[in-house]
Design a protein around this nucleic acid. Sequence first.
DNA 1: TATTAAATCTGTAATGATTACAAATATGAA
DNA 2: TTCATATTTGTAATCATTACAGATTTAATA
Lengths: 144, 144
Amino acid sequence: MITNMKHVKSELEQKGIKPTYQRLCILEYLHEHLVHPTVEMIYDELIERIPTMSKTTVYNTLKLLSEKGVINEITITGTEVRYDINCQSHHHFLCKKCGKIYDVDVTCPFANMDHKEISGHEIQEIHGYFKGICKECLIKQNNE
Amino acid sequence: MITNMKHVKSELEQKGIKPTYQRLCILEYLHEHLVHPTVEMIYDELIERIPTMSKTTVYNTLKLLSEKGVINEITITGTEVRYDINCQSHHHFLCKKCGKIYDVDVTCPFANMDHKEISGHEIQEIHGYFKGICKECLIKQNNE
DNA sequence: TATTAAATCTGTAATGATTACAAATATGAA
DNA sequence: TTCATATTTGTAATCATTACAGATTTAATA
C-alpha cells in the first residue's frame, strides 16, 4: 500500500484543510479504493473501524474535499454520486449491465487546452465518459 | 416552429414506438425546448394542456424514448436527469452558479472513432461536459 | 489549567427525484 | 361485441441527499 496516514495528512494540510481523524480516514479510503465508490460504500466500511462515524460527516467531508479540488464528483449513473481521487485527467466507462465504472486510458482531448474558457464560459472542470457494455459482461453474453 | 405533430408522429413510428397522444406531446415539447429540461419542467407545462397527464407517464415515456435512442439522458448535475433530443453529437457546459446547461460547439473528439470499443468495452454512448461559471454569471460577478 | 468561542461531528427529520405497483383506460384483433 | 394487450394514471414506497440543531472537539487566550 502506497498510502499511509502521514501522507494523507500532509495532503490535506497542503490544501488548507484541517486534518481531522474522520477526514483522514475518508481520504485514505479513497486512496485505497479506486473503484469510484458511493457514499454508502465509504460509510459502510468506515463505520466498522469508527463506530461513531456519521453518514452526514461522510457527505460533508466529500463535499469539502470536492470543493478544494482534492477529489472529483462523478455523476454518470444519474442515481448517486461516485467519488474519485483527483489524479491526472482521465475518462470513465460505465457498464449499463453491471454498473461498474472503469477508468479509461484516453488522454482527454481538452486537457491541455491553452484557453480556460469556451464560448465565453469559464471552464473549471472537464469530464468525459462512455456508456455501453463492459468487457466482462460481453464475455458472459457470449457464453449464454 | 419547425416541428409539428405529423413530423413528431413519423419520428416515433420510424423508431417502432406507438405514437400515443402523451408520447407525441412529450416529444414535441423536447423539440421545442432545447434547454435540457427536467421531468418537472416537462410535466408542469404539459399538465396545462393535458390535465389528465400523469408524472409517471412522463417518466415512462422519457425512459422509452431514451432506450430507443430518440433522446439522451444528461446526468451532469447529480440531482436530477435532464433530457435532450438526440441530434448530432455535441457537448455540454454546466454553470455551477445558475445551474443552466449550455450546448457547446466542440466537435466530439471521439465521435468519428472507427472502432466502437475501448479497452474491450463496447461503446454505445459518448458524453462530454464542462463545469464552471457561465458567460452571464461572469458578467454579473464583474458588475458587483 | 480553566474558560470560551469556533469548528467539527453526530443523529434525526425533511426533501425531492425516481420507481413500484395495481387499478383504470384505451387500443386492436378476432 | 368481446377479449387480450398495451398504455396511462395515481398513490405509495424507496433511496440519495440536505437541513438542522444539539453534542463534542479543538485551539486560543487569560
